[in-house]
Every structure is written in C-alpha cells, then in structure tokens.
C-alpha cells in the first residue's frame, strides 16, 4: 500500500503565478470586459464634469444676470450675445443647454448617489440585524421588505411624494424608502450564509460585542453582493429621480435635474425644437448605461456562483 500512496501524488501541473491578492485578481477579472472598462471611463468623466461643473461651464445657468432672453431657443452651434457658442443650443430663457446639463448632472448624481448611500446604510444595517437576530426581528423586517418589494418602485415613490410634497429632500427620502429593501434583502441573504461560518462562531466565543461582530466581521464579508446591488441601485435611483422630476413631483424648478430639463423642453419638442429635451436625455442615458455596464461586469466578477 505504501508504494501506492507514493504513486498516488498526481502530477502537479507547473504554473507560474504571481502572488495573487484578491484585489489584484478582482481588477484583472474586471478588466476582461472592454465594454465595462469603457463604461467606467465614461462614468468617471461624467462624475468629473458634474463635480467641476461651476468651473468649466461657459455660464452659470442659474445666475439670471448671465442670461439673455434674446438668446432664447437658439439652435445648437449658434453664438450668443455673451460671445460664446451654444454647442447644444439654448432653452426658452436663453440658458446654455450645455451648462444646464452639467449643472443638472450635479443634481442628478448627488440625489442618485446620496439616496443610494443612505439607503445602503439603512438597508444593510437592517439586513444585518435581521440575519443576526433572527426570530421575530428577522421576520418583522423581512415581511416589510417583501411587502414593499411587491409594489413597483414608481408607485411607492409616488405615494411618498404624494404624502410629503416635492423638494430635493423629499425625493431623497422617497428614493431611500424605495431602495432600502433591496439592500436589506441582499445583505440578509449573504449574512445568513456567512453567519454559520466558523469565524463568526470564533468571534462569538471571544465574547466580542455584538456591534463589533456585525460591522467588523459580518459586514465586510457581505460586501461583494452589496457593491453589486449598490451600483445598480445608483443607476435606478438616477432614472427614478429623473422620472419623478419629469412628472413634476421631484426637484423644484430652481434646482433642475436632468429629468426636469427634459420636461421643460417637452412642449418645444412638438414644434421641432428638439435639443432642449434631447441633449439632457442623452446625458441621462449615457450616465445610466455607463453605470449599468460597470455594474453588470461587477456582478459577473463578484458573484461566486458564476465563478468556475
């Protein structure tokens, strides 16, 4: 038998790997999709434009002193009284659409990312709690999640804005209420699996405080699916905010997001002045699609079930 075991060592296939840290592996797997890299580059550019909008736009579209009503509804490419070219045309107030879009991006991204972040915090905490506490807490939280997910997002948002009225804060609240359930469900699902692992038992044996176990031990291990959900939800939040603003239930006129810009141009579109609606729409589209492309690839890379 002894020589059998000696023979039993299967021939080890020689492989020359570098030391592979999880992060490096993640980056290299992410880079396998060129489309996803493209999405990431585009999104980074959009985010930079949004952040630096006040410094790079030719005019501040909300400073009435800089607007000239004579420049109203100019076609893309015309040069206005202030001496610069309206590459994307102007709206009825003589506002440069390009500047308007860049400022609109700021508001759309802030609302979208902000609400996604808050929803993530709320949802992840509740999800963790549900998974860790189990029993009645768990079933109470999950009933609420199920109930909410059985209604479409637009309806829940509509309901909340009907209760609260419009305004940026109210939109954020509505988006948080719409989204938290997705995070809670994701985190609970993962945490339930992780909870049974030995390292949690070990932490419990060490009598670590509950919040430490939850946030230092359990949460980091729930991060991959959470990141995927968060990416997708940012895109969804931006789209939903735009929709609500388009319907006139979202942000106020004084702080127009992309959705409101599109709504403002709606009436002019029928008379052939397409650009007032069209370009903000393109900006919205590119933003959402680029985030989704990144999210799609993240899901493929981070989803352990798809790993070979």
């Amino acid at each position: 038998m002894s020589d059998a075991t000696a023979n039993g060592t299967a021939p080890a296939t020689p492989r020359k790997d570098k030391v592979e840290t999880p992060f490096r592996r993640f980056v290299s797997e992410f880079c396998e999709s060129k489309v996803a890299i493209g999405g990431l580059i585009v999104f980074t550019a959009i985010a930079l434009i949004a952040i630096f909008a006040p410094w790079i736009t030719p005019q501040n579209p909300y400073d009435l002193a800089q607007l000239d009503i004579m420049d109203g509804r100019q076609e893309p490419g015309t040069t206005g009284g202030a001496g610069f070219t309206f590459w994307l045309g102007t709206d009825d107030q003589g506002r440069d659409m390009m500047s308007g879009i860049m400022y609109g991006l700021r508001i759309s991204l802030t609302v979208g990312a902000g609400s996604a972040l808050i929803a993530c915090l709320v949802g992840a905490s509740l999800g963790l709690l549900a998974a860790y506490a189990g029993g009645r807490t768990d079933s109470a939280i999950m009933r609420l999640v199920d109930l909410q997910l059985s209604f479409p997002s637009i309806l829940v948002a509509l309901m909340i804005l009907a209760f609260l009225g419009k305004g940026i804060m109210n939109v954020v609240i509505a988006l948080v209420i719409v989204e938290w359930a997705y995070y809670a469900r994701t985190v609970r699902g993962t945490a339930l699996v992780e909870r049974r692992r030995e390292y949690i038992e070990a932490a419990q044996c060490l009598a670590l405080p509950t919040h430490r176990i939850l946030f230092r031990h359990l949460l980091p291990n729930c991060l991959p699916p959470l990141i995927v959900v968060a990416t997708m939800q940012v895109a969804r939040a931006i789209a939903l905010e735009a929709t609500l603003s388009f319907l006139g239930l979202g942000v106020p006129i004084t702080e127009p997001s992309l959705g409101l810009l599109i709504a403002n141009g709606y009436e002019y579109m029928l008379s052939g002045k397409y650009w007032i609606s069209f370009y903000p729409g393109i900006a919205l589209l590119v933003t959402i699609v680029s985030i989704n492309l990144v999210g799609d690839q993240l899901r493929d890379v981070l989803n352990p079930r798809l790993k070979k």
Partner: peptide, 24 residues
Amino acid sequence: RQIPGMTPSLLNLPPGCAFRTRCP
C-alpha cells in the same frame, strides 16, 4: 485495494501511456 490517484484531466494528459502515473 484501490487504484491510487485520480483520472487525469483530458486537457493535459501525461505524455505516453495515460495510465502511467497511476500504474504499478
């Protein structure tokens, strides 16, 4: 009695007789 080792991966068979590595 058992045959030591495992069926080799068909992607990289050892050169020569495929059973060689497990054969007494």
